[in-house]
Amino acid sequence: MANITFITQDNIPVTVHGESGSVMELAVENNVAGIDGDCGGVCSCATCHVHVAKEQFSLVGQASEIEKDMLELDDDADEYSRLCCQIDITPELDGLVLTVAGQ
């Protein structure tokens, strides 16, 4: 349903295809380095932090207050940060490029 590219912490692009579920689950299923998803996707661990390409940020939209509170204390966060457990895969995300945080 959507092809999504992760740029890993070693600057390697990994493009994977997802049908449903969250972007974090897609990354974990495909062993994308740097996306751990320790809490399984309930916004508790912040181990699925990605930077969305600026020009594509409207595709994923703003984080919720709870997610923003988590990102606020992440030293690597910026205005295009998201926790990708909170992004559901939809056809609109086809072509999305996400940079794994922590580089």
Binding site: C43, S44, C45, I66, L73
Partner: peptide, 13 residues
């Protein structure tokens, strides 16, 4: 099935 659950039972940071 609580969807958003930013608990700190495993600590934080």
């Amino acid at each position: 099935d609580r969807k958003l659950n930013p608990h700190v039972s495993f600590g934080f940071s």
